[in-house]
């Protein structure tokens, strides 16, 4: 399921990223790689703030929809 479906505060595991090449690359640099655990901290109109490896990253809705995760 896409990251946007994850309820606030629930942890999930990153599965696959369908975003554009450059965006995907940047997300990977930030630690959003397959198998990483990710948690949604806050949501605003579909835009998210997530916790990834202890850092807080803002992701807009479009990208979040392309980021597939699995519930854990």
């Amino acid at each position: 399921m896409p990251l946007t479906m994850v309820p606030l505060g629930k942890e999930a595991i990153v599965n696959v990223c369908n975003a554009k090449e450059a965006t995907k690359k940047f997300l990977e640099t930030l630690g959003i790689t397959p198998g990483a655990s990710i948690c949604v901290i806050s949501e605003m109109g579909g835009n998210l703030i997530v916790n990834i490896k202890g850092a807080r990253v803002a992701i807009n809705r479009g990208v979040a929809q392309q980021l597939m995760v699995e519930a854990c």
Binding site: A19, K20, T23, F26, L27, L30, N47, I49, A55, R56, V57, A58, I59, N60, G62, V63
Partner: peptide, 11 residues
């Protein structure tokens, strides 16, 4: 196209 927005937020 509108560029994606991915940014680290400092604590």
């Amino acid at each position: 196209e509108v560029a994606p927005f991915v940014m680290e937020l400092p604590p």
